[in-house]
Each structure stands twice: as structure tokens, then as C-alpha cells.
Simulated assay, not measured.
Amino acid sequence: MISAGDFKNGLTIEIDGVVFQILEFQHVKPGKGAAFVRTKLKNVVDGGIVEKTFRPTDKYPQAHIDKKEMQYLYAEGDMYNFMDMETYDQIALTDEAIGDTMKFVKENDMVKMVSYKGNIFSVEPPMFVELEVTETEPGVKGDTATNVTKPATVETGATVNVPIFVNQGDVIQIDTRTGEYLKRV
């Protein structure tokens, strides 16, 4: 059990059977009245964000989140197939369970399966990926104003805004958390 006075960013707790991750917390000691802890919590299953206040003496069980690295094999219809590289067990997850987290992941890339009590609720792609640009318009000569971007389609089918000097066939690095272009490799 963790008391609200011991909350830290990134900690996962269980409140009424729902698992939350603490995004922000603040201990508030008003001039009058009792102290309290103001928090911003993220529901780890559905991604919803909630703001709650707690008394510093409130206690909640810590939720243990498991992360296991697996290899993405292939997509078949609306199912994504993954393999545990230690046991060679394969699992398939639906498109609904994964969301859009796989838009920058190629076949045979390693991803992290995030689960609570054996139920996988999220897939974390690598933070940075290198993908080849398969389609983009050529840059217009003379269009050199700062921060000019154009859309580019990468080999996984996702679209990313890239600087005008990036051409078809270039390999670029992308931050999967934000979907932003980082650099040409």
C-alpha cells in the first residue's frame, strides 16, 4: 500500500479496480485547513486523464505493470501477430486493442507488451525508428523559407511531415511518441 503522501511521477496505483499512472502530483498545504495532494492520473487501459485530490493519509495498492519485449511478426486482416523470443509463443492482438501504435513498426521489429495481471492493454513501439521514405513530392527550388515541410509516406504506410530536402528513397529517423521527423540517416 502506498499513501498519497508518497506519490511520485510514473507510479501506478489501483483505485476501485482501475489502474492509474500518476502523471503529475502536488502537495498543497493551504493556510487554513488540512493538507491535500492534487494529482493528474492517466487510466492505463483506456488512456483517459483524470484530476483527483487525496488526503495525504489515503492508502492505495500499487499496481504492478509488466513489460515484456516481443517481436512483431505480421498483420493478417485486423489481427497483429507477435512472438515471445524466449519461449517462441505467438499471440495475436486485434486492431482495437493496439490502436495506432503500430503505424511506425515494421515486421520483425521488437516492441514492448504492457500488461496488468496477464491482460495486455498496450503495445509500446521503440522510441525511435528508421524508415525509408516511399513517396513524397520533390522540393520546389527557391522554397527555402525556414521550417517548410511536406508530407511523406514511409514504408509502413504512415504519413510524416518532413523538410523539403528529404527525397523518395531517403531513410529518416522518427520519434514514435510524437510522430515527428528527427533527422535523415
Score class of each variant (00 low, 15 high):
Phe7Val: 04
Tyr72Trp: 07
Thr156Trp: 03
Lys141Gly: 05
Val171Lys: 14
Met85Tyr: 00
Val28Ser: 12
Val140Asn: 02
Ser115Arg: 04
Ala34Gly: 13
Lys150Ser: 04
Asn81Tyr: 14
Met83Phe: 01
Ala63Met: 11
Val19Ser: 03
Ile65Lys: 04
Pro30Thr: 11
Thr149Ala: 08
Val111Cys: 04
Phe128Asp: 03
Gln90Thr: 15
Tyr72Phe: 15
Asp175Ala: 05
Glu69Tyr: 06
Phe25Ser: 08
Val114Arg: 07
Ala145Phe: 09
Thr53Gly: 08
Lys68Tyr: 09
Met127Pro: 10
Thr12Leu: 00
Ala34Ile: 11
Glu155Tyr: 00
Phe165Cys: 03
Lys42Pro: 03
Met79Pro: 08
Thr176Glu: 05
Glu86Ile: 09
Gln173Leu: 12
Lys42Tyr: 11
Ile172Lys: 07
Val111Lys: 01
Ala97Trp: 08
Asn43His: 13
Arg184Lys: 15
Met79Lys: 12
Ile65Arg: 07
Pro56Trp: 04
Asp66Gly: 02
Met79Thr: 09
Ala92Ser: 07
Gly118Ser: 03
Pro126Val: 01
Lys106Gln: 10
Gln26Ile: 10
Ala145Arg: 11
Asp95Asn: 13
His27Ala: 13
Asp46Glu: 11
Thr153Arg: 14
Val111Ala: 01
Ile15Gly: 09
Asp100Ala: 12
Thr178Glu: 06
Gly17Cys: 03
Asp84Arg: 01
Val45Ile: 15
Glu14Gln: 11
Ala63Lys: 10
Gly5Gln: 13
Thr101Ile: 02
Ala97Arg: 15
Gln71His: 00
Leu131Pro: 03
Ile65His: 08
Glu130Tyr: 09
Gly48Ile: 06
Val166Asp: 06
Val148Ala: 00
Phe121Ala: 01
Phe104Arg: 03
Tyr74Asn: 14
Ala152Asn: 05
Thr57Met: 03
Asn167Phe: 06
Arg55Val: 06
Lys103His: 02
Arg177Cys: 02
Gly47Ser: 13
Gln62Leu: 12
Thr149Gln: 08
Ala63Phe: 10
Asp58Trp: 10
Glu135Ala: 09
Val45Asn: 11
His64Pro: 00
Tyr116Asn: 12
Pro151Leu: 04
Met85Asp: 12
Leu93Ala: 09
Gly5Thr: 07
Lys52Thr: 01
Tyr72Glu: 00
Pro151Asn: 04
Asp84Val: 04
Ile13Tyr: 00
Arg177Val: 13
Thr159Pro: 06
Glu96Ile: 14
